[in-house]
Design a protein around this nucleic acid. Structure first.
Lengths: 105, 105
DNA sequence: ATCATATACAACCAAATGGTTGTCAAATAT
DNA sequence: ATATTTGACAACCATTTGGTTGTATATGAT
């Protein structure tokens, strides 16, 4: 298996999506992120590591704290892909209509 | 680990994203899907199984062929989530501005 | 100076993922 | 009638995932 580190992987996990929503409102340290999440702080740290590797967050040390800040520009990649596939999907009947129109004449 | 079967999981894998784009243009059978993909037909079948379980495609038998058809309405869930997080992320500075404005007076 | 907090690091675990090959049955083509 | 194609089913495999616990270390609070 290949370790995939991209936006799609970043948002695939529900816990990571919660973390992203939290961080989108402002920077937090690891303890704060884990506050109302029912998993160990170590599990949070692992998700943070993945999000960092996916380029979705940036870190900056502040004393003993590790402050995480969201970096959501990459989400455009997701929007673009979704838009493209939905567009193609919506167009799929136009082709059929064209075919039926040409078949009728 | 919990087996997650949702849109986010469906689009997490690059091969599945290619399959979705292909199927968004019209129905195809498993062999056709695998045509220019460099993996075994069994691997394709597994991806199809996952996409089916995620509710992203529907199947209908046609003789010995298994025709797959995209069902992309669920992609709205992705769009909604992305929109929400980006919105919050864009708003994050407004709060800061408000704070600075109130601190100044 | 001591205690508590924040997190890093490592080892471990079960299950999921993404792939492979082999066999078999049914439908289609020659 | 026979050969080919389509795909289902199973077993197998290495790696990743998402979690755990335990230990250690640096920073901050009392």
């Amino acid at each position: 298996m290949i370790e995939r580190r991209d936006v799609f992987q970043a948002i695939a996990d529900p816990t990571r999506r919660i973390i992203i929503i939290k961080l989108s409102q402002g920077p937090l340290n690891i303890t704060q992120i884990g506050e109302d999440l029912d998993i160990s702080k170590q599990a949070i740290a692992k998700h943070i590591k993945i999000l960092k590797e996916c380029g979705m967050i940036v870190m900056n040390q502040k004393g003993r704290e590790q402050v995480c800040e969201a970096q959501l520009t990459q989400l455009d990649e997701v929007t673009d892909w979704v838009t493209q596939s939905r567009k193609l999907w919506n167009q799929r009947f136009e082709k059929l209509d064209q075919f039926l129109a040409s078949a009728k004449k």
